[in-house]
């Protein structure tokens, strides 16, 4: 048994173990078919497709369950809840900006050693802060809570970096 088929078997056995009860029979069915597939790579592609199918099936069932359990219960998100969610989303967006900025700086360093030598230590912070300011400004009117989340993260992050460099 070659590596692709072994991998396929392991993947499908893991899917059987992890699948929710209502999808497990199907996952088992896909695993059983693996023995009859001709070709190592065909077996691996079968397993990958099967894993995707189970994932989608489980997702659909969870969505159905959620819709069933929230229907008729007047689970309407009130204004306060919306603001909190918006704020958290804003913080996450700002965090994503930070990762993007770090990635951009690393990429620039990799592409050009001259840039690596020229830029300052906190270039990525500067880039992330610029992203955050632009996004917060653009979102201020339509998504105020998201904008506030971005700004809070940018201010706290900026202050943290400033203190870090001041203490060094």
């Amino acid at each position: 048994m070659g590596t692709p088929r072994t991998l396929a078997g392991k993947l499908l056995r893991a899917v059987v173990l992890l699948a929710p009860a209502e999808s497990r029979d199907w996952a088992n069915a896909m695993l059983r078919e693996l023995d009859f597939i001709e070709g190592e790579w065909a077996a691996l592609f079968w397993a990958l497709g099967s894993a995707t199918a189970i994932f989608r099936h489980a997702g659909r069932n969870w969505r159905k369950w959620f819709q069933k359990n929230t229907r008729g219960q007047e689970v309407v998100m009130n204004g306060m809840m919306k603001k909190i969610v918006g704020f958290v989303v804003g913080m996450l967006v700002a965090l994503a900006f930070a990762f993007v900025a770090i990635g951009l700086v690393r990429l620039a360093d990799y592409l050009s050693p001259a840039i690596a030598q020229a830029h300052i230590d906190w270039t990525h912070v500067l880039i992330a802060e610029i992203f955050a300011i632009v996004a917060a400004t653009l979102l201020w009117r339509k998504r105020t809570s998201v904008s506030i989340g971005i700004m809070v993260f940018a201010i706290v992050g900026g202050a943290h970096v400033a203190i870090h460099y001041a203490m060094r």
Binding site: W26, W46, L48, G49, T52, A53, H57
Partner: peptide
Amino acid sequence: KYGYDISRNSGLKSGTLYPILM
């Protein structure tokens, strides 16, 4: 009919076939 046989006869990959069967 078996899943793999249907897959071969229809030309569909497992990721497409099984959601339809389900």
